[in-house]
Nucleic acid binder design. Structure first.
Lengths: 144, 144
DNA sequence: CTGATTGCAAATCATTTGCATTTGG
DNA sequence: CCAAATGCAAATGATTTGCAATCAG
């Protein structure tokens, strides 16, 4: 079973558990985020869906409402770049981001060294870490 | 000579060097950011200035234009929280943040190990780093 | 003088909200 | 059934832009 199917199953469980109602739209929106390797803005998602599901006619507000719900239930997460939220799946392991300030390209990475050091710093300051965000900004190979 | 005075001197140099014109407004806006220990939104700055310099009558657009200029010239920097940019001086040495999710206490720290590793990661990905932001979220000693 | 900067108002962009209509359980 | 979700349009909030008036060099 693909990861996407699993996450959609998880969505259905959450909806059932909360006593809400499942809809095709919300599943399409989630699937669109899950299946894209890039970070997508609400508008990106709206455009992709409008093209792929011409018949459906999904409104922008629905996209925003669904994204908000999906982020709250931690099925997806977002980062803000250039005054715009970009969404991605929350099921591909923790990673941090390199962001090109010119072309906005995003590269994901993960460094055990940094993760270990973060834990050490937290411990030194008597903090119990829950999560963190790290963005490195600069010029990518093409833009520098 | 205070740090603030030094930075304002720097602003004047930049303006002269670029052949632009110095204004009281821009200096007031810069000074407001420099002298505040917190991160301020454009509106925060506008409000502080409106109160402190009742006679001046500085417009919101002027605040935004000045902040943009000051960030471009790297006299200040910003982070985006909750769809709103918050500005702070760029002259108190680089640091990252530990944030308590319960009491909102913020501890600033700096780790050479992490900085070095970040440079290494950037290099591996052919990035030229300009800056970065790192926030570690968790419970502080008092709240956990 | 003259081009840069200001300050107002109007415009824009991303996102949210109100509400009548539709739909899932 | 009926509360939840949709989809449109209008509202919002942060930021930008156009432009006439002002001001610094």
């Amino acid at each position: 079973m693909s990861n996407t199917k699993q996450v959609i199953k998880k969505l259905r469980e959450i909806i059932k558990q909360k006593g809400l109602k499942n809809t095709k739209q919300r599943e399409i929106i989630l699937e669109t985020v899950l299946d894209d390797k890039n970070h997508l803005s609400a508008e990106d998602i709206y455009n992709k869906i409008s093209k792929k599901y011409k018949d459906e006619n999904i409104g922008m507000a629905t996209v925003y409402k669904a994204l908000k719900f999906l982020e709250e239930t931690e099925l997806i997460n977002s980062i803000t770049i250039d005054n715009t939220k970009k969404f991605e799946t929350n099921f591909k392991g923790h990673h941090d981001h390199l962001v090109c300030v010119k072309c906005n390209k995003i590269i994901e990475f993960m460094s055990e060294t940094i993760e270990d050091e973060q834990e050490k710093i937290a411990k030194d300051n008597k903090f119990v870490l829950l999560k963190h965000t790290m963005y490195l900004y600069g010029y990518c190979g093409n833009c520098s």
